[in-house]
Design a binder for these strands. Structure first.
Length: 319
DNA sequence: CACTTGACCTGTCCGC
DNA sequence: TGCGGACAGGTCAAGT
């Protein structure tokens, strides 16, 4: 699920919702890849800590604490971070919808109808929490809560010293942020030199080449730049990489504007779905006409991932 | 080192 | 309706 725009959307929500709050309780359910229990170091550096900032690097969420520790969260495929505000009355969480304390349902933020979500546009993907997908859950001193849900248990939440964050392997390896102003075609071209003999799709999914692109935005960007995803990196002229760079940036920006993509699981920090997929041109649109030329969109497999292309707009170039 | 594949998990969907 | 297999947005370890 969450690629850069989804994680950024969550970050923006959390920045508004939890900065300044103090952690009063930590609950751990079944999260084999996360910190084990609300005891020991976790309790020492998490309990009583105040949230000072919420940052993002690539697809990783960095919740900074007054204890100079950072809560790192990776949502992987099905993770969710959901804030539930307000009272600490247990009864508030019973029943789906009408008594809900979810900010998304009480603040009038109604998602537009969704192509993929199914059901009524007001439906939340979230029932009362914690539920059977909840892996961690923080309770703040004002009674509001932050839930980490993850159906498939690929995701994790870890606590480590803020100064140690840049030292972990992933952070050292990860490539540039594509929405930074200094991310130019020249930069991407240079980064791609490490993956010259693989397909362009595999290359842009590689987080060491650039940060934050996943399957949805890879397909959308390659369609926008008119590049076949199976094209080998070495066969793509620099001018095309310039186009791809612009495409990646505009696709990611549009998705952030739309609150990200909700296929099945993704919701923002307030439980709301994102609507980007309504604006997608190829992703999951196999069988439908290409918006640019009308050719039927196909689904193929590239780099082990389902991949959507317009066979007319996107041709494999061979040198 | 560069590259590909399978594993991690659980749920859903599709065909028989 | 039930069952088996393929598949799902991400990364990592292990293989070639």
């Amino acid at each position: 699920m969450p690629e850069l725009p989804e994680v950024e959307t969550i970050r923006l929500g959390l920045q508004r919702l939890i900065v300044g709050k103090t952690v009063a309780q930590v609950h751990n359910y079944n999260s084999p890849k996360s910190f084990p229990n609300a005891d020991g170091d976790v309790a020492q550096f998490l309990l009583g800590a105040t949230i000072t900032n919420v940052r993002r690097r690539a697809k990783v969420l960095l919740i900074e604490l007054s204890t100079d520790y950072t809560l790192m969260v990776h949502l992987k495929m099905t993770g969710q971070i959901v804030y539930v505000g307000g009272t600490s009355h247990q009864a508030s969480f019973r029943g789906r919808g009408k008594n809900s304390e979810f900010t998304s349902l009480s603040s009038g933020g109604v998602s537009p109808s969704l192509r993929w979500g199914g059901g009524h546009p007001n439906d939340s993907l979230i029932g009362h929490l914690p539920d059977n997908t909840t892996r961690e859950h923080l309770e703040f001193s004002d009674g509001s809560r932050l839930y980490f849900n993850d159906l498939r248990k690929f995701g994790w939440m870890k606590l480590l010293p803020t100064l140690a964050v840049p030292e972990i392997d992933f952070m050292k390896r990860v490539g540039p942020e594509p929405l930074e102003t200094d991310f130019t075609g020249d930069v991407l071209f240079e980064r791609l030199q490490r993956r010259k003999n693989t397909t362009i799709k595999a290359a842009i999914l590689d987080q060491s080449v650039l940060a934050g692109v996943g399957n949805i935005y890879a397909d959308e960007s390659l369609w926008a730049a008119k590049i076949h995803p199976k094209t080998l990196v070495k066969d793509i002229p620099k001018s095309k990489i310039q186009n791809l760079t612009s495409a990646i940036r505009s696709v990611l920006k549009l998705s952030i504007e739309k609150g990200g993509s909700t296929d099945k699981n993704y919701v923002d920090a307030e439980g709301k779905k994102g609507s980007y997929l309504q604006f997608a041109n190829v992703f999951r649109l196999d069988g439908q006409p290409c918006p640019r030329c009308g050719t039927t969109i196909e689904k193929i497999r590239v780099a082990g991932r389902g991949t959507h292309i317009c066979p007319t707009c996107q041709k494999i170039v061979v040198n």
